Simulated assay, not measured.
Amino acid sequence: MEELYPALAPHASGMLEVGDGNSLYWEVSGNPDGKPAVVLHGGPGSGSAPLSRRHFDPSAYRIVLFDQRGAGRSTPHVSEPGVDLSGNTTWHLVADMERLREHLGIDRWLVFGGSWGVTLALAYAQTHPARVSELVLRGVFTARRSELDWIYNGGAAHLFPEEWADYLAPVPQDQRGDLVEAYRRLVDDPDRAVSERAAVAWSAWEGAIVSIVPQLSYRTGYSAPAFAVPFARIALHYFTNDAWLSDGQLIRDAGLLSGIPGVLVQGRYDAVCPPTTAYELHRAWPGSQLMLLDGAGHAITDPGMLAGLRMALDSFSGS
Rank of each mutant, 00 (worst) to 15 (best):
3 E>L: 11
8 L>G: 01
12 A>H: 05
13 S>C: 08
16 L>G: 00
19 G>E: 09
19 G>D: 05
19 G>A: 09
22 N>D: 07
23 S>V: 07
26 W>L: 01
29 S>Q: 02
30 G>H: 02
36 P>D: 02
37 A>F: 06
37 A>S: 15
38 V>D: 02
41 H>N: 13
45 G>R: 00
48 S>I: 00
48 S>P: 01
50 P>K: 09
52 S>L: 05
55 H>D: 11
57 D>F: 09
60 A>C: 14
61 Y>Q: 03
62 R>W: 02
62 R>Y: 03
75 T>V: 14
77 H>N: 12
79 S>I: 13
80 E>I: 09
81 P>V: 09
84 D>C: 05
87 G>N: 06
87 G>A: 07
90 T>G: 02
91 W>P: 05
92 H>L: 06
94 V>L: 07
97 M>F: 04
108 R>V: 06
109 W>E: 03
110 L>A: 12
114 G>E: 08
114 G>I: 05
121 A>W: 06
125 A>Y: 03
126 Q>F: 05
127 T>C: 10
131 R>S: 13
136 V>F: 07
136 V>D: 02
137 L>F: 10
144 R>Y: 00
144 R>W: 00
146 S>R: 12
149 D>V: 01
154 G>D: 12
154 G>N: 12
154 G>W: 04
157 A>K: 12
158 H>L: 14
160 F>V: 11
162 E>F: 11
163 E>P: 03
163 E>D: 13
165 A>C: 06
167 Y>L: 08
168 L>Y: 10
171 V>F: 09
174 D>C: 04
179 L>K: 13
181 E>P: 10
181 E>D: 15
185 R>H: 13
186 L>M: 08
186 L>D: 06
188 D>E: 14
190 P>R: 08
193 A>E: 14
195 S>F: 15
197 R>N: 04
199 A>T: 12
200 V>A: 04
200 V>R: 02
203 S>G: 13
203 S>M: 11
204 A>I: 08
207 G>C: 09
207 G>P: 04
207 G>N: 08
207 G>V: 05
208 A>H: 11
209 I>W: 00
209 I>V: 14
213 V>A: 15
216 L>V: 10
219 R>W: 09
221 G>V: 13
224 A>F: 07
225 P>V: 14
226 A>I: 10
226 A>K: 13
227 F>R: 15
228 A>H: 02
229 V>T: 13
230 P>L: 08
230 P>W: 04
236 L>R: 01
240 T>W: 09
244 W>C: 01
246 S>I: 10
246 S>W: 09
247 D>C: 09
247 D>N: 12
248 G>T: 03
256 L>N: 04
257 L>H: 07
260 I>L: 10
262 G>H: 01
263 V>K: 01
264 L>M: 08
270 D>G: 07
277 T>G: 00
282 H>Q: 14
285 W>H: 06
287 G>Y: 07
287 G>E: 13
288 S>R: 00
290 L>E: 06
291 M>N: 14
292 L>D: 01
293 L>Y: 04
298 H>Q: 03
299 A>F: 05
300 I>F: 14
310 R>W: 05
318 G>Y: 08
319 S>M: 13
319 S>I: 09
